[in-house]
């Protein structure tokens, strides 16, 4: 940084000294050439921004503005009256205080943590195992891997409905199987101890394909000569996995897990369709709680709902920033 002005000072006098002879002519030509170039650069920038402007305006109107309205909402007491005359009292942090002292807050936060953590652990490890399995070329591997994507492409509402029926206490296929093996009837969706497990099973099932595809592409990025060298050295399959695959896959793994975190924090459809967060609060996460406050009941309680939503966004942003940092580190090895 400090070097730049020094060299410039050195260069300028020598240029001036050398240019004495033709000074008059070049003094005229150089600035106008520079001006033309500057004008061209400005025009190029204007053109570039003409292409980008629609998206920037869109981001302001359809991302920033809703977020601002949501933030504003969480600091006001928005009631049914507010819908009609558009006014709502500014109440500072009242909504946040109400939400934090609510008896639903602790279970919702805990459920969010458990739901996210357990989902990630299972999605990732099953996805990795499958990616390693499908990476060994065998007949039909490509076709079967493609079929694995189907659960991820289905509308979440469809997947949730299927699981709700499969886990039905009396008529579900899962209980039929358990009872055929001599087990008891489990009230998957209606008992407090199993409700969270049920939505976890469905969510893990939905997330496996995503993990599989990304980790598979990560495996493709590992140079094959590393594996050849390992097999020449007589490494076993297990050793190869722990000593080569796992360390070399670390950057891709970090991104997969962090993206999984950000996406799982957002999960709403599956839980809402299967249990509505119940029984009581057994499977209520922050997303579910926010939705239930805002749109679930007879009277919309939008302000506390917005406060819960903003707590969720803080969590998502923390993980999001970690993700972006991890991605930067991956881009510049």
């Amino acid at each position: 940084m400090s070097a730049t002005p020094v060299t410039r000072e050195k260069v300028t006098p020598s240029l001036a000294a050398r240019g004495i002879a033709g000074g008059a002519a070049s003094a005229d030509a150089v600035p106008s050439g520079r001006r033309v170039r500057a004008r061209q650069r400005r025009r190029a920038q204007l053109t570039a921004w003409a292409f980008i402007a629609p998206v920037v305006i869109y981001l302001v109107v359809f991302y920033a503005y809703p977020l601002y309205r949501n933030l504003d909402l969480s600091f006001r007491d928005y009631t049914l009256r507010s819908f009609i005359d558009g006014t709502a009292d500014f109440v500072w942090f009242d909504n946040y205080a109400k939400v934090l002292s609510n008896s639903t807050f602790a279970p919702a936060l805990l459920n969010t943590a458990v739901f996210t953590g357990v989902s990630i652990i299972f999605q990732f490890s099953i996805g990795l195992a499958l990616a390693v399995f499908f990476f060994r070329n065998f007949p039909l591997a490509t076709t079967l891997r493609a079929l694995f994507l189907v659960p991820w492409l289905l509308p979440l509402l469809v997947s949730a409905s299927i699981w709700a029926w499969m886990l039905n206490s009396e008529s579900g296929i899962v209980n039929a199987l358990i009872q055929a093996l001599g087990g008891p009837q489990i009230n998957w969706l209606t008992s407090p101890e199993w409700a969270l497990v049920s939505v976890l099973i469905a969510n893990i099932w939905i997330g496996i394909p995503f993990n599989l595809v990304i980790l598979y592409s990560g495996l493709q990025g590992i140079p094959s000569d590393v594996y050849e060298a390992a097999s020449l050295d007589g490494a076993s399959g297990w050793q190869t996995f722990w000593r080569i695959t796992v360390p070399l896959l670390r950057p891709v793994s970090a991104i997969t897990i962090l993206l999984g975190l950000v996406y799982t924090l957002k999960v709403f459809d599956i839980i809402w369709i299967m249990t509505r967060g119940g029984p009581v609060n057994a499977s209520t996460t922050l997303s579910i709680w926010s939705y239930r406050l805002g749109f679930g009941g007879q009277s919309p309680d939008l302000s506390p709902a917005a406060a819960v939503g903003n707590l969720l966004i803080i969590l998502a942003f923390i993980f999001g920033l970690i993700y972006i940092r991890a991605q930067r580190r991956l881009a510049t090895p």
Binding site: L67, I313, A316
Partner: peptide
């Protein structure tokens, strides 16, 4: 990364 429920409330 913004959760859908938050956008939904703003849009509402």
């Amino acid at each position: 990364m913004i959760p859908g429920i938050i956008m939904a409330m703003g849009f509402y």
